[in-house]
């Protein structure tokens, strides 16, 4: 469904992605592991059209994303949850969700999506009139995921959703990923939390210095494998 082939990308003047190839199939949860600064987040930004892609191809459900204007990419059904959450702090929780409303004017569908989001995150419903900037870190993370769900996506790109969260909330993120999987939403999960990623993913890619170095089904890997140590060990 989502396929990257030999993607080269620059961040300003520095060459960050040196030929990234990966694919995510329908309904799969795919983990992307690697140390800090190896280009995991940039890979997601390249998919969203937020960094300039020099060469290579990114295709999604028959569309060549490389040629799309950035704002059309999410409309094809790709939700993006960035690593620092990037909620709109001066908008209310409800307005944050409304930024993702269906633009073809299907009011019934948007109400349904909103209810679905509030169903998954009752906390947000309680605080829907509150400014998003006043939410706690965990609540902001929920809002960022709920906001991406408002696009009715076929795939969600999740960038380090557990970063800086309490262990209790990490468990909650896991539950959310399971819920999304049951709704047959694919997920491309960027993480540093190896046990969690291996537990929720179908397949895992290991990344180093701007390229994919290893690929394996999650079930064949364990936290203590050599290959994990090689690419993630300190």
């Amino acid at each position: 469904m989502l396929k990257l082939q030999d993607v080269q990308a620059f961040y300003g003047k520095s060459h960050v992605l040196h030929g990234v190839s990966l694919d995510v199939e329908d309904g799969q949860v795919v983990g992307l592991l690697g140390r800090n600064g190896v280009g995991k987040s940039t890979t997601l930004k390249a998919i969203m059209g937020l960094v300039a892609v020099q060469s290579g191809s990114i295709t999604f459900a028959g569309h060549d994303l490389h040629r799309q204007r950035p704002y059309r990419i999410p409309r094809l059904g790709i939700g993006y949850v960035p690593e620092d959450r990037r909620i709109f702090p001066q908008l209310t929780v409800l307005d944050n969700l409304r930024t993702g409303f269906d633009r073809r004017g299907a009011a019934a569908r948007t109400e349904q999506l909103l209810e679905q989001a509030y169903g998954s995150f009752p906390r947000l419903k309680e605080r829907q009139r509150q400014l998003a900037g006043t939410l706690s870190g965990g609540e902001q993370q929920m809002l960022a995921i709920a906001r991406a769900m408002m696009l009715d996506p076929q795939i969600i790109l999740l960038d380090e959703p557990t970063e800086g969260l309490m262990p209790r909330l990490v468990g909650q993120i896991r539950e959310i990923i399971d819920v999304l999987r049951q709704a047959s939403v694919s997920i491309l999960l960027v993480e540093q939390n190896v046990p969690m990623t291996l537990a929720v993913s179908d397949r895992v890619y290991l990344m180093e210095r701007g390229a994919i170095r290893h690929e394996a089904p999650a079930s064949e890997l364990s936290v203590d494998d050599d290959v994990i140590h090689k690419y993630l060990g300190v």
Partner: peptide, 24 residues
């Protein structure tokens, strides 16, 4: 809706793009 787009874009241009708001 358009006013919301304006406010969202003012706060975070990149994220507005990532939510499908036609920022240009």
């Amino acid at each position: 809706r358009f006013g919301l787009w304006i406010r969202a874009t003012t706060q975070d241009r990149q994220m507005a793009l990532a939510m499908g708001i036609p920022v240009p």
